[in-house]
Structures are given as structure tokens and as C-alpha cells.
Design a protein around this nucleic acid. Structure first.
Lengths: 135, 135
DNA sequence: CCGAATCCAATCGGATACTG
DNA sequence: CAGTATCCGATTGGATTCGG
């Protein structure tokens, strides 16, 4: 078992072995960010091209102005996207992935792949469960 | 660009091409589940062995009885975990991954790997950002 | 055009007490 | 042992309004 495997299988026993860091905080720290409602969609949307605020909002229907702002600020704070302001009128602000952000895209694509492949079956399981466990 | 890539880059434009399904609901549906506070840790903890309720709770310090129950019910409903009750006294209930659940472990490990690798730098970025943007 | 500020409803999740 | 039930504070996120 690798160290990374251990982090998710026994994320809290690090102190016992004495030789390995406790990786749970890292996993929680990342999940708390990209596990939210919009971060991964923003990351994915910026995958191929730099976009400005209004373009991002058009590419991600359903996201409110507030949540797009908050999400972009978090991603910028984590060093995953850059925010570039051009001193023009009307103002123009462009968002792009950093190198670190691009490495996250690969993980996001893996998760998207799994989701698309398994979600239909999951929905059937849910329907079965609900029918079986109906009051 | 593959279909899966498209789902995360332009998750809502499926209707325009006419040939591809709209994958955003699948990604959202999966993220809404495994993006919560405990699901991924439960999945990872069940990776190598079947465990009973109290064993799971010991392996995931910090999880409340209530949240472990709720999380396991959701995972069972999604067909990711099986719940087996043995008619004994005292009662014994064992939880195990399904085949589908095991495929999710691979994705979870990828995410854990990325987290462990990048979280230290993320924390430094956060500190920098907070110092730079201090009132 | 970009975004900050405020308000508010809904959901999440911990603590506690109780049950077969 | 393995839950269920209730209460309640904290967090999330949408709608709206205002500002540079």
C-alpha cells in the first residue's frame, strides 16, 4: 500500500507509524474546495481558453453572479486561476488556469468520466432503492 | 475533444450538437454525493475489507453516529455499498463495497494523490493571498 | 462590465437522548 | 451493537440592490 493509498484508507493513523505524514487534512482541504457546487465546472470551463467574467457566466448556466465571484476568488486564492484586470472602459477582467490549475483538470476529467459512465446505473439503483424501501 | 471532455468544458451545449447527451447532470449528481463531508472517506475505508458499523466509526475519527448512518444509507441507495444484517445477538451489520463502489475507489485515489501533492503549495498560496489582500 | 453588500431560505451536520 | 429521533447552530447559495 502506497502512502497515498494509506491516506484515504487510514487517513488518521499517521501518528502511529511515525514515518508518514497525516494526509487527511490535505484530502479534506481539497475536497472542501473542489467539492462545492461550482469550482470543478469553472476549472473545466477554463480548460481550453482564457475567459472573461461574463463569458464564464454564459458558459455555466445557472451560476449566479455572486457564486461565480466567490468561486473565482477561492480558486485565485488557492493559486489555481489567475485574474488579470485591463485598465479599459468598459473594464475587462480575464481569468485563466495556472499550471497548478491545469494539473487539476486531469483529475476533474477522470471524475467526469466516471460520472458519465456510472450515473445512469446509479439513478436506476436509486429508483430501485426508493421503490423497495417505500413506506 | 472527447465526449467526456466536452461534458466538463461545455457541459450544457449538448443540445446544439444534436449528437451528444448533456452530461452536466451526471457530473453534478456525482459531485453532490461524493463531494460531501464523509462519503469519500467511507469509500476509501472500505477499500480493503468489509467492516461493521462500529469499526467504520473507529476508522473515521470525527464522524458522528448520525452522519455515518446517513452516509452509508446514501451509498447503499446509489449501489456503491452493500449492507448485510446478521440475525445474531448482539446484532452485527457489515458494510462492503460493490463492484461499482470499487471503480470509484480508483478515482478517489487519484484525487487523494493530487491533494497530497498540491495541498502544501495551496496553503502557501492562501497565506500569500491573505497577506497581500489584508485590509 | 465587473463585482461588493445585504438579506434570507434551505440544507448540513454535530450533540444528545432514546430504542430493538 | 446499530441504529432512530429531535433539536439547533453553522454554512450554503440564490435574489436583489448598489457601486466604480
Amino acid at each position: 500500500m502506497t502512502s497515498v493509498d494509506a491516506a484515504i484508507v487510514h487517513p488518521y493513523e499517521g501518528a502511529c507509524t511515525g514515518s508518514r505524514a497525516d494526509h487527511a487534512p490535505a484530502i479534506r482541504g481539497v475536497l472542501d474546495r473542489i467539492g462545492d457546487k461550482w469550482s470543478l465546472l469553472v476549472i473545466g470551463t477554463l480548460r481550453e481558453s482564457t475567459l472573461r467574467f461574463s463569458e464564464l457566466q454564459r458558459h455555466i448556466p445557472g451560476i449566479s453572479q455572486r457564486m461565480l465571484t466567490l468561486t473565482l476568488r477561492q480558486l485565485e486564492r488557492d493559486g489555481l486561476v489567475t485574474r488579470t484586470v485591463y485598465a479599459e472602459v468598459p473594464p475587462r477582467v480575464e481569468y485563466a488556469l495556472t499550471d497548478r490549475g491545469r494539473t487539476l483538470v486531469d483529475v476533474a476529467v477522470e471524475l467526469a468520466k466516471w460520472s458519465v459512465e456510472h450515473f445512469p446505473a446509479i439513478e436506476r439503483s436509486r429508483a430501485d432503492y426508493d421503490r423497495t424501501h417505500a413506506a
